[in-house]
Lab assay of single mutants.
Amino acid sequence: MGFKLLSKLLVYLTASIMAIASPLAFSVDSSGEYPTVSEIPVGEVRLYQIADGVWSHIATQSFDGAVYPSNGLIVRDGDELLLIDTAWGAKNTAALLAEIEKQIGLPVTRAVSTHFHDDRVGGVDVLRAAGVATYASPSTRRLAEVEGNEIPTHSLEGLSSSGDAVRFGPVELFYPGAAHSTDNLIVYVPSASVLYGGCAIYELSRTSAGNVADADLAEWPTSIERIQQHYPEAQFVIPGHGLPGGLDLLKHTTNVVKAHTNRSVVE
């Protein structure tokens, strides 16, 4: 069995187990497998329904001669939608809004960016022009300005110390501490036991640490421990890039980060 097929099978099995364990909360999309990078042309966006009122959005972007996937989250909030992270750029984010209108038909009224990198804030200006209120932590807003990236308009308070959590509509926002970046936030959907790890969490097929220019490698494993301790009931975990899975993604990420750190020390 090929690795790609095995990865998709694991996603399907995880979703099936969740649907059985929580039949009222989960209505997993039966329309197909989780979209992969090879299936999404740059400039297009796919939506994948995880649970009743919960979707991931998947886009792709060219970077350094390669094409990478990027995940975000959409959560229903009454007759409105909360968006977590842009679709990595203005063109993708405009396509995301169009796809949401086509498939869901509810307005996106608020959006949260989970850290300051372009795959999370690139497209904020498109959201703002569409009347979406954009939010991020003060740290993310400051770092985005320093980096020359787009800056969300509103500040999220109460997320300055490791372990801080605040309720934001249908989700809980959690600051686990520094990891992929010093400002990275985690998003949890309690009604569906869905954990969105953003770039602080890796997919299972990833074996290298990737972009760690703004990471705190020493603190990252401790931050992941905080996530595990705060959300032990999480059933569906979405990484910032690639295929979702279960809580095993947290341990896998820790292993990859520690291996990278150990290699760096040896070198």
Rank of each mutant, 00 (worst) to 15 (best):
M1S: 05
F3D: 06
K4G: 05
L5I: 15
L5H: 15
L6A: 14
L6M: 13
L6W: 10
K8Q: 08
L9P: 14
L10V: 14
V11K: 07
V11R: 11
Y12K: 15
T14L: 10
S16A: 15
M18L: 12
I20D: 15
I20N: 13
A21Q: 14
A21R: 15
A21F: 13
A21D: 15
A21P: 08
A21E: 14
A21H: 14
P23R: 12
L24S: 13
L24P: 12
A25S: 14
F26R: 14
F26T: 12
S27Q: 15
D29T: 10
S30P: 12
S31F: 10
S31I: 08
G32V: 10
E33W: 10
E33Q: 11
Y34S: 08
Y34K: 08
T36Q: 12
V37E: 15
V37N: 13
V37P: 15
S38Y: 12
E39A: 13
E39C: 06
E39H: 10
E39Y: 11
P41K: 11
P41N: 10
V42T: 10
V42A: 14
G43M: 03
E44N: 13
E44Y: 09
R46Q: 09
R46A: 09
R46W: 08
L47E: 02
L47S: 02
Y48T: 09
Y48E: 09
Q49V: 11
Q49C: 06
I50W: 08
I50H: 07
I50Y: 04
D52Q: 10
G53W: 06
G53M: 08
W55M: 02
S56F: 11
I58S: 11
I58C: 04
A59G: 11
A59H: 06
T60N: 10
T60D: 04
T60A: 12
T60I: 09
Q61S: 12
Q61V: 08
S62I: 08
S62A: 10
F63R: 07
F63K: 07
F63G: 09
F63V: 14
D64S: 13
G65T: 09
A66E: 15
A66R: 09
S70R: 02
S70D: 02
G72P: 03
L73R: 02
I74E: 02
I74S: 04
I74A: 04
V75P: 02
V75I: 08
D77W: 08
D77Q: 04
D79G: 11
E80R: 07
L81P: 02
L82I: 11
L82Q: 00
I84Q: 00
I84F: 12
I84W: 00
D85E: 02
D85Y: 01
A87S: 05
W88H: 00
W88Q: 00
W88P: 00
G89V: 01
G89F: 00
A90W: 07
A90S: 13
A90V: 08
K91L: 14
N92H: 03
N92T: 07
N92K: 04
A95P: 01
L96V: 02
L96C: 00
L97P: 03
A98F: 11
E99I: 11
E101L: 07
E101T: 11
E101W: 08
Q103N: 15
Q103T: 13
I104Q: 00
I104V: 07
I104E: 00
G105K: 11
G105C: 05
G105I: 00
P107T: 11
V108L: 08
T109Y: 07
A111N: 05
A111Q: 08
A111L: 04
A111I: 01
T114L: 00
H115T: 00
H115S: 00
F116G: 04
F116M: 05
D118S: 08
R120T: 02
R120H: 06
V121K: 02
G122L: 06
G122Q: 12
G123F: 03
G123E: 04
G123D: 04
G123H: 01
V124Y: 04
D125N: 13
V126R: 06
V126S: 07
V126E: 08
L127T: 00
L127M: 02
L127E: 00
L127V: 02
R128A: 14
A130H: 11
G131D: 07
G131M: 06
G131S: 08
V132W: 01
A133L: 14
A133D: 14
T134D: 02
Y135P: 00
A136P: 04
S137K: 07
S137N: 08
P138N: 07
T140H: 05
R141A: 07
R142P: 03
R142V: 13
L143D: 01
L143A: 08
L143N: 07
A144M: 04
V146L: 14
E147R: 13
E147Y: 14
E147L: 11
E147K: 15
E147F: 13
N149H: 10
N149V: 09
E150S: 04
E150N: 07
I151V: 14
T153Y: 12
T153R: 10
H154V: 08
S155A: 14
S155H: 10
S155C: 06
L156T: 03
E157W: 12
E157F: 10
E157G: 12
G158C: 05
L159G: 01
S160K: 14
S160V: 12
S161G: 13
S162C: 07
S162E: 14
G163F: 05
G163D: 07
G163Q: 06
G163K: 05
A165R: 13
A165M: 14
V166G: 04
F168V: 05
F168Q: 02
G169Q: 03
G169V: 04
P170W: 01
P170N: 15
P170H: 01
P170Y: 01
V171Q: 01
V171E: 03
V171H: 02
V171L: 06
V171S: 00
L173Q: 01
F174I: 04
F174W: 01
Y175H: 07
P176V: 01
A178K: 13
A179T: 07
A179L: 00
H180V: 00
S181V: 03
S181F: 00
S181R: 01
S181L: 02
S181K: 02
T182H: 13
N184S: 03
N184P: 01
I186F: 06
I186E: 01
V187L: 04
V187C: 03
Y188N: 04
Y188C: 03
P190Y: 08
S191N: 12
S191G: 13
S193P: 04
V194K: 01
G198R: 04
G198V: 06
G198M: 05
C199H: 02
C199P: 03
A200E: 03
L204H: 11
L204I: 13
L204K: 14
S205E: 14
S205H: 08
S205T: 10
R206F: 11
T207N: 15
S208A: 12
S208R: 10
V212R: 07
V212T: 13
D214S: 12
D214K: 07
A215H: 06
A215L: 05
D216W: 06
L217E: 06
L217W: 08
A218W: 11
A218R: 12
E219F: 06
W220Q: 04
P221K: 08
P221M: 10
T222P: 08
T222Q: 13
E225C: 04
R226T: 06
R226S: 06
I227M: 12
Q228V: 13
Q228E: 12
Q229L: 13
H230A: 14
H230T: 12
H230V: 10
P232G: 12
E233D: 13
E233P: 05
E233K: 14
Q235L: 09
F236T: 10
V237G: 02
P239G: 02
G240M: 05
H241A: 01
G242E: 04
L243E: 15
P244C: 02
P244A: 06
G245E: 03
G245D: 05
L247A: 15
L247V: 15
D248G: 12
D248T: 10
L249G: 02
L249I: 06
L250D: 02
L250K: 00
L250G: 02
T253Q: 02
T254V: 12
V256N: 00
V257C: 05
K258V: 11
H260R: 12
T261G: 13
T261D: 13
N262L: 11
R263C: 06
S264P: 12
S264V: 12
V265N: 10
V266K: 12
E267W: 09
E267H: 13
